[in-house]
Design a protein around this nucleic acid. Structure first.
Lengths: 250, 250
DNA sequence: CGTATACTTGATTGTGATCAACGACGGTGG
DNA sequence: CCACCGTCGTTGATCACAATCAAGTATACG
């Protein structure tokens, strides 16, 4: 099957009832009887090759998405063309929601790996919110979570060193992937499709400096990396450098 | 009347029906018949002298607040004790809401000036959300707005120069105060109770460097400052330096 | 193979931090 | 009323972290 260069709708989309990311996703709290509604409202599943933009900041926000598979990078573009990364979206994350109809996306989203997303129109999302208070509450909770990571980013960029910021991003991804069962717990290794440039975009650094910091972390025996994978050799020390606190909510 | 050193409940709180900040506040879209409910649910009005903490990060988030009068600084504290400013809350702003019951505040809030806030328990807020879809939608919209400013902060801290960041904060406050009628449009001057230290906290800079940048902005004829006030002498140039875009939503 | 992209390394520069001191107010108490 | 003190603003000297500039080396892909 040839890989398309653009977003394409999937011919045989999966069914929500058997969705493997459902327990992490928007409709995790939705009672089973609402699932049919969720699936009927789901506009479509889309496939994105790496480096494809799902949506772009300041474009009309017509759809929200649940990540079904793959990694996406959320970012904002500066006037000089450089990017500031905001978040790495993983399977189960709900992205691109706009609270106000006819509003614009506040950031762009680009596939890092091959990715599959489930799309919902904003209009449908708003209707579901109005109809089901539990969904409304869940959306505000998702927004609240994202808000918290956003505040954490502000603190990191304003006050933390390059080393702390990079260590934090890695520790955060490690734990989020672990929750999804994507971490090899023996080797403590995880997939890591981010380029050093993307890691720099997330941490407000240049790719050159990102490289030097990563090198130091490896030299200190904290982590090791092969192609597209990272192994954490010294998790306690990674946490210490990152000042990462494990969140015991899940 | 002696000024108290701590938060005190106001003896004769104002009534929501005649609230002057209502058109900017949480209940702006609430139909008149809900106002009685809003007022009955409002736990109390509180008065805060300058430098008083309204709530502190990681404390149990039992209440949300509408700012009735005065300025508050929202911030997060770094492990070394330094602060990273997140937002300046002005009259009408709704702060401290936690989407999940029994959750914790993600940041601290401190009065910059004398301030009066209207408090609501999170439990009551959640009940109102569940009972009135229009309030639910409005809360997600408020959250969305704050999310957007938070993303803007991340972009600023990650990519913009000290001068741009400071100019942006000033331009943003100028326009938000203008919407509230707190700007003298002839002189283009506004109240400015922030210390240079606080401005530095908001922009991720030290107070020393903040001082130098302000000095340059004054030297360039962009602004002038007296005690507790700032006048914008060259608004177009301030916008240009800040890369500020006027938001034509209101 | 040839070409892109990603990663690596060194040399130099620059923005903003740090350290240190002093001046201007404004509030408080003797 | 004035002396005192604490906070805030100002300025200079020096330092450091990360950016920039510039090659050069793997690696993957077509």
């Amino acid at each position: 099957m040839p890989k398309s260069k653009t977003i394409e709708e999937r011919a045989a989309p999966t069914r929500c009832v058997v969705c493997p990311v459902r327990n992490k996703a928007l409709f995790q709290v939705v009672a089973d009887e609402y699932l049919a509604e969720a699936q009927s409202r789901r506009a479509a599943q889309y496939h994105l090759p790496p480096r494809t933009e799902l949506y772009r900041e300041s474009a009309a926000a017509d759809m929200g998405y649940t990540v079904y598979d793959g990694w996406l990078l959320l970012y904002r573009t500066h006037s000089d063309g450089s990017r500031q990364g905001l978040h790495v979206a993983l399977p189960g994350d709900f992205i691109g929601y706009a609270a106000v109809t006819n509003h614009q996306y506040t950031h762009s989203a680009m596939a890092i790996t091959d990715a599959i997303v489930c799309g919902f129109t904003q209009a449908d999302l708003h209707e579901m919110i109005d109809g089901h208070p539990s969904i409304a509450r869940h959306i505000t909770a998702i927004q609240g979570d994202y808000l918290q990571t956003c505040e954490t980013n502000v603190l990191a960029l304003g006050r933390k060193s390059a080393e702390q910021r990079i260590a934090y991003v890695i520790a955060d991804l490690y734990h989020r992937l672990d929750q999804r069962g994507d971490v090899d717990r023996h080797q403590r290794s995880m997939p890591f499709p981010l380029t050093q440039e993307m890691l720099g975009e997330l941490t407000g650094l240049t790719s050159v400096h990102t490289n030097r910091v990563l090198r130091r972390l490896r030299g200190d025996g904290i982590m090791a990396s092969e192609r597209q994978r990272i192994a954490i050799l010294d998790l306690p020390r990674l946490h210490e450098v990152a000042e990462f606190r494990v969140n015991h909510l899940a």
